[in-house]
Computed example of a mutant assay.
Amino acid sequence: MLVFLVLVGCATNRLHFAPYTSDVDLLAIENHKTHTAVTDVTGIERCSTCSEMSKIVWHAANYNGGLYEGFANIPVANWPEFIRQAIGSEAAASMKTRVEIERIFIKTWNSPDYYACQAKLSVYVGATKYVGESTVKIKGSGQELVAPRLASMTGEGLKAVSIALKAAYIDALRDPGEDSAD
């Protein structure tokens, strides 16, 4: 029983056993207009020794004749701009928000091929804090294995991060009376 609880508790296993996100849900997230302007992004941390516990991290796992697992920074150079684009921030929008990254964890795996991302954000409207979370899991690789122990994240992998961030933002600002889409 304890082993099961430990496996369920770690982010990599939660993503591995999560259901796939439907194409309809992915499209709904992408097409959702937020009508907000993100004025500031905080909580950005790059890990020097990345692990499952890192705040913003990519877990690449591959089976190619032998198991390889590694943790690395998500290859995003400018997080504030990446988040603004992911959310669909509009500079002229009347609602201004601040975003704090609580956690971004993406896992890519090749057997079966999938890439999955969990995101948790705090969104501030004035002094009021709203928290949103999301999990997005997509069939496909999200990575390329460039050497036996070296993976490179693809554009599809980064798109999953973008969609998960937007879904977490939508979740944070969702009207409590709305049905959950994730």
Rank of each mutant, 00 (worst) to 15 (best):
R46V: 07
I83V: 08
A147C: 10
L150G: 06
A61Y: 06
F71C: 05
E102Y: 04
D23S: 14
L145Y: 02
V125R: 02
S134T: 08
M1E: 15
K96P: 13
Q143A: 06
A160F: 05
G66P: 00
I83F: 04
A61T: 09
R46S: 10
P112Q: 08
E45R: 15
D113W: 11
N64K: 15
A116P: 02
A72D: 14
M1C: 14
A127Q: 10
N64A: 08
C10M: 15
T36N: 04
F17L: 10
S141C: 09
P80M: 01
A172M: 02
W58N: 07
V136Y: 00
V131S: 09
A164G: 07
Y130Q: 04
M1K: 08
T12F: 08
S122A: 13
P80Q: 02
A61P: 05
A181S: 13
E102C: 10
V146M: 06
R103Q: 14
K107E: 05
F17M: 09
L2W: 11
A160M: 10
L165Q: 01
L173R: 12
K139C: 05
C47T: 07
L150H: 13
Y124W: 06
T135A: 11
S134L: 06
H59W: 03
K55I: 04
K33S: 11
A160K: 00
V76A: 10
E52L: 12
K96C: 03
P19K: 15
I163R: 13
N62M: 08
G177Y: 12
L67P: 11
H59T: 08
Q85C: 10
A77E: 10
K120Y: 04
G142R: 00
K166E: 01
A151Y: 01
I170A: 03
G142Q: 00
S51T: 08
L7A: 09
D25P: 04
Q118H: 13
C10E: 13
K33G: 08
W79I: 01
V76K: 03
R84P: 02
M53T: 15
A93Q: 03
V6A: 06
P75V: 05
E102K: 06
G177I: 09
A37G: 09
W79T: 00
E144W: 02
D175S: 07
D179F: 05
W109L: 05
N31R: 04
S162V: 04
V8G: 13
R98K: 11
S51G: 08
S94Y: 00
C47L: 01
R103P: 15
T42A: 13
M1W: 14
V146G: 01
F71D: 02
E52S: 15
T42W: 06
H16G: 03
